[in-house]
């Protein structure tokens, strides 16, 4: 990490939010949201694993219906999208035009993620699998569905700040997007792999 870019970002920010968050980079409120979301998804994933103890065989069988390759593809899609968003934050002050393009591309990868997700859901529905089919599916639909809703919200945010890219709003939208990324990285092993 070069020192120059983050400083450039910070020039745009009010001092207050930095003091209040005890040195957290960026806006205090977005960190409140990020931590809240991580707590919710963390609790959901722990609840899945805890409920799994009651029926390990049933959970393993149910899990085998999920599409692991799709999940792996989506991981690469999301971390790449996160890269574009992070790049946009660093360029927002100096080159807003390029930042806009990067944000649109990042949102585009979000759409790719949702398309893969939709095909995954379609395959499950085709097998007649719904949220009540098995406890595992209650969790997997709930957690991945919640996450997908956040992807959609993140795309909207990215596109909104792409209209007039300035470091502060772009920083907020990108931070939300990275949170979506982070949640996915932690969700995949528990829902798809273990």
């Amino acid at each position: 990490m070069t020192a120059a870019q983050p400083t450039a970002r910070h020039d745009e920010k009010p001092k207050a939010s930095e003091e209040g968050a005890g040195g957290l980079p960026g806006e205090l409120m977005i960190w409140v949201l990020i931590i809240s979301e991580l707590v919710v998804f963390g609790a959901g994933l722990l609840a899945l694993l805890a409920t799994r103890l009651t029926d390990p065989a049933g959970f393993a069988e149910a899990q085998s219906h999920l599409h692991r390759v799709g999940a792996a593809v989506n991981t690469v899609v999301l971390v790449s999208s996160g890269y574009l968003a992070a790049l946009a934050v660093r360029l927002a002050a100096a080159r807003p035009g390029l930042a806009r393009l990067l944000l649109i591309l990042a949102a585009g990868l979000g759409a790719v993620f949702l398309a893969v997700k939709a095909s995954e859901y379609a395959a499950l529905f085709a097998q007649g699998i719904g949220t009540e089919t098995h406890a595992f599916f209650t969790f997997s639909y709930l957690l991945t569905g919640f996450h997908a809703a956040h992807v959609l919200a993140g795309m909207v945010l990215l596109l909104l700040v792409a209209v007039r890219p300035a470091p502060r709003p772009v920083g907020v939208a990108a931070a939300f997007w990275h949170m979506v990324d982070l949640v996915w990285v932690l969700l995949v092993p528990v829902v798809y792999l273990l």
């Binding site: 809240s36 707590v39 919710v40 609790a43 959901g44 609840a47 949220t131 009540e132 209650t138 969790f139 639909y141 709930l142």
Partner: peptide
């Protein structure tokens, strides 16, 4: 209401 509310409710209301 569908069963997933039990987990949504438990997790969010704990917070």
């Amino acid at each position: 209401t569908p069963g997933y509310w039990q987990w949504i409710g438990s997790i969010f209301s704990s917070l």
